[in-house]
């Protein structure tokens, strides 16, 4: 059962990685990159490292996404949409 979960997580993460690379919209790319981190934190939980899972969930999918959005906001001069 658990290997199947890992395979599903892996497919979603690789899909999100390619989406982050090939999406035209930068906003969509940034959100996809956040999705990778969110699923990675579930994987860390399966691999027996709850400490790492907590860090990845808060930093990877939370603060990193926000830092990217702040940078995009500065570049776009206050307009996040394309």
């Amino acid at each position: 059962m658990i290997p199947v979960i890992v395979i599903v997580l892996g497919i979603v993460m690789l899909g999100a990685a390619f989406a982050a690379i090939y999406f035209k919209s930068l906003l969509a790319s940034i959100i996809s990159a956040g999705v990778i981190s969110l699923f990675a934190s579930v994987l860390y939980l399966i691999l027996g490292s709850p400490d790492v899972a907590m860090t990845e969930a808060t930093i990877g999918s939370g603060l990193t996404t926000v830092v990217f959005l702040f940078a995009l906001y500065r570049v776009r001069k206050g307009n996040l949409d394309d």
């Binding site: 709850p50 400490d51 899972a53 907590m54 860090t55 808060t58 930093i59 939370g62 603060l63 926000v66």
Partner: peptide, 17 residues
């Protein structure tokens, strides 16, 4: 328990966020 300075610090920073 799981957690510690790095995780707690990040949670505090997200509160300020």
């Amino acid at each position: 328990t799981p957690g510690g300075g790095f995780q707690g610090g990040v949670v505090i920073a997200s509160g300020f966020l």
